[in-house]
Design a protein around this nucleic acid. Sequence first.
DNA 1: GACAATTAAATCGTGCGCGATATAATTTGC
DNA 2: GCAAATTATATCGCGCACGATTTAATTGTC
Lengths: 144, 144
Amino acid sequence: MSPTNDHQILENQLCFPLYAASRLVTRLYQPLLEQYNLTYTQYIVLMILWQDDGLSVKQIGEKSLLNSNTLTPLLKRMQQAQLLERIKNKSDERQVDIKLTPKGWQLKQDLACIPQQLINQTDYDTEKGKQLKTLLEQLIAQLK
Amino acid sequence: MSPTNDHQILENQLCFPLYAASRLVTRLYQPLLEQYNLTYTQYIVLMILWQDDGLSVKQIGEKSLLNSNTLTPLLKRMQQAQLLERIKNKSDERQVDIKLTPKGWQLKQDLACIPQQLINQTDYDTEKGKQLKTLLEQLIAQLK
DNA sequence: GACAATTAAATCGTGCGCGATATAATTTGC
DNA sequence: GCAAATTATATCGCGCACGATTTAATTGTC
C-alpha cells in the first residue's frame, strides 16, 4: 500500500467521466440505430457524408478523427450494406472517394428524428449541453 | 438530398465531441501505460482496486460501468500478467473476488506520476477541467 | 426440502479502435 | 528521367465494448 496521490483517485480524474459518458451516450443511440443495422461509428460517418458527399477516406478520417485501419473495414461493411460506394479517384489513384447511394441518403430522412428523440428521452438540460459541448470542443482542439 | 435538420449536423451534436474527446484522451494515456503493458481500461480497473481491493467482478462493474462480458477476459489477462488474483468467494461461490498482487500494488507507485504528467503535457486549464468534470458527472448520473 | 426465480460470472459473436506495417501511387530532388 | 521520399489506403493483430445467451450457485415460496 503506497501513499495515495490525489490524482490517482478515480473520482478526481477527468478521463474516467469522459470515457464513461461517451460509452453511456453510445449505448443510448445503439437501440435506435440497430433498427437500421447501423453502429454508432457508422452513424458518425453517415453524418459526415450527408454534409459533404464524395469525401476521400483521408478527409473522412480528418473529420471523424479515425484512421484507415478503422475506416477501411467500416466503409467496406457500409458498402456491403449498399449505403455507399468506394470509387478510386481518377486523378489520384491512391485515393478512394466515398459516395452515398440512394439508400445512404434515405437514411438521412429515416434517422432525422433520432437526435430530438434522445433529447426528449433524457431531458438533459439544454444549457448544460451547450456548455459541455463548448468545453469538449476546446479540449479536442488542444489535443488534436 | 433531404431537408437538413439542424440536429443532424455533426457540429451540433453533443455525442460526437464526447466520443472524440474520450478517444483522444485515451490515446494520450496509451504510450505512458504501454511501458507497463497496460491498456487504458486496465488502468481504470487498477485505480478502482487501489482504492478498494478485494471487490467482486460485479462491484468493479458497478464502478467502471462495465459488464462481465468485458471484465472477465480483461481480468483474466491481468491475472496472467500477475497483477491480481481471482478468488472464488467462500460464502457465495457465484462470486469472484479480485485481489491485487504485490505487483499490482507496485504499479500504484510506478504510475503515480502519470496524472500530473498529462496535466503538464497538455497544459489544459484546471478551472475548465473542473467544470467539464462536473458537467460530465451530471450527465452520467442522468444516464446511468 | 423441492423447485422456480434470481443472481454472478462466463462465453460467444461482431464491430470497433489503433499501433505497426505493407502496398501502391505520386511527388521531389538531383 | 529516375531513385528516394512522401502520401493514401489497406492489412494484421490484439484488446476492448456489448447484446445475447449459458452455466452454476443462491434465494424465495410453498
